[in-house]
Amino acid sequence: MSNLQKALESGKFAITAEMAPPKGVDFSHQIAVVEQLRGKVDACNVTDYQSSSLKASSIGLCIKLIQLGIEPVLQMTGRDRSRMAIQGDFMAAAAFGIENILALTGDHPTVGDCPESKPVYDLDSVGILRAAVQLTTGFDCGGNKLDGAAPYYYLGACTTPVYDPVELQLMKMKKKIDAGAKFFQTQGVYEAEPMKPFMEMAEKYGVYLMAGIIPCKTAAMAKYMSNNVPGIRVPEYQIERLKAAAAKVPADDPNVKKLKAAVQEAEGITMSAEFLAELKEKGLCHGAHIMAIGAEENVPKILAEAGF
């Protein structure tokens, strides 16, 4: 049984972080991030060509994490692989001791840096979950028997609480639960209220909900995400709070640009920590998934400030 499953099932407030493989073959940055996260998180997601940006594969970095002794969550999208390739990767994953899987649809290739790539989507996220469950019964998608023991997976999926109409996301969450998802990580959220119906759904069906936390580095980033990233809404008062932090830096300071960035980043960390504590206090999630987007060194800071 994976650490993540143990943590969630034991009622502990579980924490996952996230990292992306490199664009290239040098994993040294990722190896450094592992040291920053070691002992602080229950598991770490490895993204699968996130935002359709071509990188080293998720499974490759997941194997590296296993070798380094930190538990991975293999993200698997349907964008680039047929059902055969997905199940093949799942089998290889199990052979390396990877149990946690997060099934995702995957961003469309046209939004990424390899837009000529063929969108596959042979299976959607529901189909990917089913394909994994199928393997755990000892058979593949063609009904053919696997040689040897059947693999074991701890299956998860994502959901987007800030969505209009929200019923569509809840409906899909229910289908993912029916297909075998045991834990959910949400898109980045900034307000407690939208979490409520998702937590109700999770409690009703005995699955676990992890709130997605994306710390804002600057007011500009917060605003950009809010306006452009699907599923993300940063309330105006939070953007104002980041601006106010920046405004405290004296304009005549020779390092004004750097300082403004630094104080906003620190404020963003504090805001994430406060929000995390609020969610936990209100019982609106069973854990948190912190997506620091390249600033993974901030993950332990957020956890410390939140008092975890």
Partner: peptide
């Protein structure tokens, strides 16, 4: 745009598809 059969991805923004802000999300 992804021919999904079980409901939407999380990619719609303001009701439009992630692949094209001029196109309604099919779901």
């Amino acid at each position: 745009a992804k021919s999904l059969v079980n409901g939407p991805c999380g990619g719609a923004k303001n009701g439009k598809c992630e692949t094209n802000p001029d196109v309604e999300c099919g779901w």
